[in-house]
């Protein structure tokens, strides 16, 4: 017997039936943790909101302060600003977890990564997409968006911004191992954001002209459902690649 022989460790058998492995519990635990973390570091969710406000206020100054012109471009401006500020916040989704090593712990833990990732993305949306949606009517007023358009604006952002967080998560996961991810995330993600932008602004235009909005919102909803089911898979795969490489 050699002196270096170590004591045999008890075999690790995760009890997959136990409570701590139920998808709902994992999702909820991740959600709670991330929301708590975000509240402790407020710049993460306040900065994108300020950015949103600033980008939108550039247009009256840069294009023209004339109410008639502003009200026609308002849907697009609000949506583009929301899209850009989501992009800006995307880098923080996995960055701090990657830097302090907790991302690796999540990856090696026996819990299904799908639900952890979903929880992280939902908490990201709650800290960026949801405040953006709630603040959008204010920007609408600033840009002279007629009152009829407000419903379409809020609803389209409410259904559209979760998709932005889900798709952006793929870009964030692919670039988390890189030192400079900032511009690259935008390059990867903007092409995938374009369909959401098109149907989001189309919904507002439709509600402005009194046409039925339901069709555009249904398409946004379909994109959200597809994102919810498939994006966490892609994010999980991308995280495994980025962290192992």
């Amino acid at each position: 017997m050699s002196a270096f022989q170590t004591k045999k460790l008890p075999e690790f058998k995760p009890d997959l039936e136990s409570e701590s492995f139920s998808p709902g519990k994992i999702l909820l635990a991740t959600l709670k943790r991330d929301v708590k973390l975000a509240f402790r570091r407020q710049s993460d969710w306040v900065n994108p909101l300020i950015f949103f406000l600033m980008v939108a206020s550039l247009f009256p100054l840069g294009v023209s302060p004339e109410p008639k012109l502003l009200s026609t471009i308002a849907p697009g401006v609000v949506w583009v600003a929301a899209l850009l500020s989501t992009l800006l916040s995307m880098d923080s989704l996995f960055r701090s977890d990657f830097e302090d090593g907790s991302l690796e712990q999540i990856l090696v833990s026996p819990q299904p990564l799908y639900f952890v990732v979903l929880g992280k993305v939902i908490s990201h949306w709650m800290m960026t997409g949801l405040p953006l949606t709630l603040m959008a009517p204010l920007l609408g007023v600033m840009l002279f968006l007629p009152f009829e358009g407000m419903g379409g604006l809020v609803l389209s952002l409410l259904i559209g911004t979760p998709t932005l967080s889900l798709v952006g998560g793929i870009g964030a996961a692919l670039t988390v191992g890189l030192r400079k991810g900032g511009v690259l995330v935008s390059l990867l993600v903007i092409p995938l954001y374009i369909p959401v932008l098109i149907f989001g602004t189309a919904a507002i235009e439709a509600s402005l002209t009194g046409l039925p909005v339901a069709g555009h919102l249904a398409l946004l909803g379909a994109m959200l459902v597809m994102g919810l089911t498939l994006a966490p898979l892609a994010i999980a795969a991308a995280l495994r690649i980025s962290v192992s490489g």
Binding site: V167, I170, L174, L187, L188, I190, I241, S242, G245
Partner: peptide, 29 residues
């Protein structure tokens, strides 16, 4: 734009195998 994103991602990652896997995920998305 998707092609340009794939090329940018591939050139940003130094490790050849990681770059290949990451761009494959992006291409599939």
């Amino acid at each position: 734009f998707l092609y340009l994103g794939v090329i940018a991602l591939n050139s940003a990652i130094e490790s050849e195998s990681t770059a290949a896997q990451s761009t494959a995920v992006l291409a599939l998305v």
